[in-house]
Amino acid sequence: MTTTDLGNLARIGRWRLPRRHVPVLATFALLLVMYGIGVSQYRAFSDIQVVFNAFIDNGFLLVVAVGMTFVILTGGIDLSVGSVVAMTAMVSASLLQNGLPAALVLLIALLIGPTLGFVMGCVIHYFEIQPFIVTLAGMFFARGMCNWISNSSIPITDPFWTGVAQERIGDPRGNFVSISVLIAFAVVAVAAYALAYTRLGRNVYAIGGNPQSALLMGLPVARTKIMVYTISGLCSAIGGILLSFYTLSGAPLIAVGMELDAIAAVVIGGTLLTGGSGYVLGTVLGVLVLGVIQTLITFDGTLNSWWTKIVIGGLLFAFILLQRLIGIRKK
């Protein structure tokens, strides 16, 4: 084979390249179609505040899903996130009730999630146990801790919390977002940068592509794997704080099943469950898809809110099949 032959092969490769963007583009197209349906059916839907509200109502989910994106990119899964969100909110509410200063509460609340994530990451890596079962254990543990703290909801009256919760950042026409949305955007920006421009991020993709190869290429597999669960824990903690801003309380049974919403958002956003391919931007689109479905069903008014779940279920099927088809054609 001559060098030109190899070049031709490579050029065929170049033509195929956009394929890894296909899932994200499909999600984007789906979002546009759903938004288009909304706008054509309901006049108020074209109001830009509808989009802002989708972010306000799902900011915490977005942050959690970003953390989940890291984990899924390595080919793992983190089922503990919903419980960690609830636990973080519970701990914050409980500590504030006991009169601790807001800054200290924030610090403690933000440490719990990453610590649990770090421990789970170590167990997963060093004992070579399936992430599914380790994080399932983490999920039960964190949920149990919520109930141990209190069996009932704890209201938050701390001025810092209420201040942040009520702050509206908007334009003169009355459109606004909450501080939570800005925090969520900041998390998205940092995560996108980390995945694209840092060694940690690239190692995440490499491990998702082929963990054995990553090890043989001398990449810090142990550190990276533990790191992604720690990051997921941190994102859950931030998500928990945002949720406590949103509800101004900590409740032991809040965010039940949120891990599944997060996984759904990540997958609908085009990240491969087997790891190695996907973008944070896709996850943002995935969360928006969920948000727009909720909004559409709210606007309709006659449909039961469980229809959200039915539609999400159908979409998940469609996207998993899409991933499979792309994967098959690649071979």
């Binding site: 092969l9 490579a10 490769g13």
Partner: peptide, 14 residues
């Protein structure tokens, strides 16, 4: 002396 598109995903190469 290899003429390979360096931006192509490795999996698409022979």
């Amino acid at each position: 002396e290899l003429d390979i598109d360096v931006t192509a995903a490795l999996g698409t190469c022979s």
